[in-house]
Simulated assay, not measured.
Amino acid sequence: METGNVAWLRVDTQTILTIHGHVITKNHRIGVTHSDHRTWNLHVKELRQSDRGWYMCQINTDPMKSQVGYLNVVVPPDILDTGTSTDMVVREGSNVSFQCAASGSPPPSITWRRESGEPIVLPSGEEVISADGPVLNISRVSRLHMGAYLCIASNGVPPSVSKRISLIVHFPPMVWIQNQLVGAMEGDRMTIECHSEAYPKSINYWTGDRDEIIAHSSKYEPITIENQYKIHMKLTINDVGKTDFGSYKCVSKNSLGDTDGTIKLYPITRPSTNRPKHKGKLLLNINLHLKKEGKKR
């Protein structure tokens, strides 16, 4: 560079930052260095978004010479609490709208995914693995939509960030029975089964012919297997006797309602294992008859 005072300025505010080797601004994050008074460097520590803009290097020669450069400050994405949905609890059949707000530079893009990896069902009926945009709408929510949804914000500046939003769907119990008529023999060990779905979590139990609740005992073994909102109910009856034949109900109740299903256990006659009597005598009589017929001939 030609001799002359060198100054750094902030173009948009017309603020003089440095003159030659001296810092003029009161901003402690600004510094200046040079190499043999030929190459002058402006230093900005602890960058902020407010530092983004045009900077001018000016040489006070005659005529004056200057050069400008633009400082772009990129900022990783951050998901904002304001404008972003929190966990939701809705009734089945409702419409749901998830929202996600994020800051960053450049402005982040928003992508939605289900934590389980299952597809997202859009209002159009289309199933997609991911959906773009700050708003995710789901129409006529069903229990199949229940689970965690991830709002992912990214702008090319690592790291990307995400927020987990849980969708809980409430619905009254429903019961399915595969076999409503079940046959058993006296002395058998028999298991009857039914399936139910309910949320909030349901109370599940079995009743007998007189609507009495069947408790666990040496005779009865009720078992309940739970998987989210799905319930698999089993009732094992040990050493089936005459008094065990009849109707059994599997009952499911929650705060939204209750329902039940009926299974009828009926007797089957045990097949006879007795062999025909006098089989040997019958064969002997046939042989004697054949011999007599032979003599006549």
Results as ranks from 00 to 15, higher is better:
residue 53 G to E: 11
residue 198 A to S: 11
residue 122 L to D: 00
residue 210 R to Q: 13
residue 88 M to K: 07
residue 115 E to I: 05
residue 134 P to T: 05
residue 144 L to K: 02
residue 131 A to D: 04
residue 50 S to A: 10
residue 117 G to E: 00
residue 209 D to I: 08
residue 194 C to H: 02
residue 130 S to M: 01
residue 184 A to K: 07
residue 139 S to K: 05
residue 112 W to T: 01
residue 209 D to G: 01
residue 93 G to W: 12
residue 257 G to Q: 09
residue 29 R to M: 00
residue 156 G to F: 05
residue 130 S to P: 01
residue 278 H to Q: 15
residue 169 V to W: 07
residue 118 E to V: 00
residue 104 G to Q: 04
residue 249 K to C: 08
residue 48 R to Y: 04
residue 268 I to K: 11
residue 279 K to P: 03
residue 168 I to C: 09
residue 237 I to T: 11
residue 54 W to T: 09
residue 241 G to M: 04
residue 103 S to Y: 12
residue 97 S to I: 15
residue 165 I to V: 14
residue 239 D to W: 08
residue 108 P to L: 03
residue 109 S to R: 12
residue 265 L to D: 08
residue 227 N to D: 15
residue 39 T to E: 13
residue 158 P to D: 11
residue 37 H to W: 05
residue 191 T to R: 05
residue 160 S to Q: 12
residue 223 I to C: 06
residue 234 K to Y: 09
residue 45 K to S: 13
residue 268 I to C: 14
residue 89 V to S: 15
residue 288 L to C: 14
residue 10 R to E: 06
residue 59 I to N: 13
residue 52 R to H: 12
residue 105 S to K: 11
residue 183 G to D: 08
residue 179 N to F: 13
residue 266 Y to E: 07
residue 27 N to A: 06
residue 181 L to V: 05
residue 128 V to T: 04
residue 240 V to W: 08
residue 233 M to W: 01
residue 255 S to Y: 10
residue 138 I to T: 02
residue 148 A to R: 01
residue 196 S to I: 06
residue 203 I to G: 11
residue 51 D to L: 02
residue 157 V to S: 06
residue 98 F to N: 07
residue 160 S to M: 04
residue 105 S to H: 12
residue 62 D to K: 10
residue 132 D to S: 05
residue 157 V to H: 05
residue 227 N to L: 10
residue 216 H to F: 03
residue 4 G to C: 03
residue 255 S to L: 05
residue 235 L to Q: 04
residue 198 A to L: 08
residue 137 N to A: 00
residue 2 E to F: 03
residue 90 V to C: 11
residue 164 R to F: 09
residue 291 K to T: 15
residue 154 S to E: 08
residue 161 V to C: 08
residue 133 G to Y: 04
residue 68 V to F: 09
residue 119 P to G: 00
residue 97 S to N: 12
residue 240 V to R: 10
residue 250 C to D: 01
residue 128 V to G: 00
residue 75 V to I: 12
residue 227 N to E: 12
residue 277 K to Y: 15
residue 246 G to K: 07
residue 193 E to Q: 09
residue 56 M to A: 15
residue 18 T to F: 06
residue 282 L to R: 06
residue 91 R to N: 15
residue 113 R to G: 03
residue 52 R to Q: 14
